[in-house]
Design a binder for these strands. Structure first.
Lengths: 220, 220
DNA sequence: CGGAGCTTGTGAATTGATTCACAAATTATG
DNA sequence: CATAATTTGTGAATCAATTCACAAGCTCCG
């Protein structure tokens, strides 16, 4: 099977979000044009993205909203639930553990870990914070699909190594540093510092060059 | 001036993070090779990225750690501080408002807004939550550089429109939906759902294709 | 001080992603 | 039922990003 670009997968997510919204509003069909408008891209891009996975539309008519929704959920692997653990019960970890959106989309947080004895044992919404020291044993037993890494930068790589050794194959990292893993482990990372610096760069170079005529309108 | 790719700017951030770490450890010089290893890229990529902005190294020796650090901070616009407001005092907004990393890197959170009367007036770390109804007046007076959007998806576009109309030129959005703005406003967005779905896709297609031989090692 | 050993900076080549453009399929209309 | 109006799916063309590869410059050592 052909390798799918990450940019394509990101856009599929965006299309799905909008399709679900359209589904709720009772729309029956939608064109690549409209999907593109809302996703901040072009209709050719939408069709190309979908074409990697099959042929979902009807010429002259567009796509059936519920059918395309279902297909995208299928492609993205969202027909099942995923077992997620969160490592790090600091500001971010706490916010994530309580974030409703996770469960809503089938990502079930089954455990939260920290190393701070003052945090271990505390309970949020039916989840007890566990000691990170025992995480390998837990991973062995529960085989979580995804680990969310919400620990300070200095500790991130060390914890990642332990997670990988214990068998975790997917990591969502919030650490401000780059995480290295073997090729069979997928890492996505959210780096706030990087995003802010991207904005800082944009604001600065705009000033430096005098009202740049750039033409980006939708984000990323 | 040539347009700089977003991917280049993202990498500059990564290089800077590692340079600062090296600076703290007292390293004097560093090669593109080493920078690449830690940034999960190649030495040619590092040199190309830097070449867009000038010539910072010494052949045969590498880059001076403090000099390159300073140059990158300069390029990224980090020699000054930036005035940041946070809109939405929910889980994410709260976590962000208290996040030390912001201030550390020169992003000063000057105000937090919400529309919930129960939240308006509450205080965290010397910041009082203000009524979002009056945000236009505040923006007029304080001219914040960056607005962090941490409101529910349904409200995000509406608030973004108000921010833009009031003069905000840079937005960091945490909304799960795409935000549209005029070309002169830069938007970066962090979309948790998208990241999780990316992992779900990777895990699923790995299974579907039977232990894919992909060769990604560092994240994004 | 001369040669060996590195490492940068950068055009050229390659690889990858996006956009174009159009035939084919479908619906709507009179 | 024929014609006009849409809209998909997809090779080909273009545009963008990455990698290659090597001359040029610097350091170090004997």
């Amino acid at each position: 099977m052909k390798r799918i670009a990450e940019s394509t997968v990101r856009r599929l997510s965006i299309y799905l979000r909008f399709l679900e919204e359209s589904e709720n509003r009772g729309l029956a069909t939608i064109s690549s044009q409209e999907l593109a408008r809302r996703g901040g891209t072009t209709s050719a891009q939408v069709r190309k993205d979908l074409s990697f996975f099959g042929s979902f539309g009807k010429r002259g008519l567009g796509y059936s909203v519920p059918e395309l929704s279902a297909s995208l959920r299928d492609i993205l692997g969202l027909r099942r639930t995923w077992n997620v653990i969160i490592v790090g019960a600091g500001k971010i970890g706490t916010a994530l553990a309580q974030y409703r959106g996770f469960r809503q989309r089938g990502f079930i947080v089954s455990a939260v870990y920290d190393r701070d004895p003052r945090k271990i044992g505390t309970v949020w919404e039916s989840l007890t914070v566990r000691d990170v020291a025992g995480i390998e044993k837990d991973i062995d037993a529960a085989a979580p699909d995804i680990a969310v890494l919400a620990v300070p930068g200095e500790e991130a790589q060390g914890i990642a190594n332990r997670l990988v050794k214990a068998g975790v194959k997917a990591i969502l990292s919030f650490a401000p540093t780059q995480i290295h893993t073997p090729a069979d482990v997928t890492v996505r990372s959210v780096n706030m510092a990087m995003e802010l610096e991207g904005l800082s760069f944009a604001l600065t170079s705009r000033d430096r060059n005098g009202a740049e005529d750039g033409l980006d309108s939708a984000s990323r």
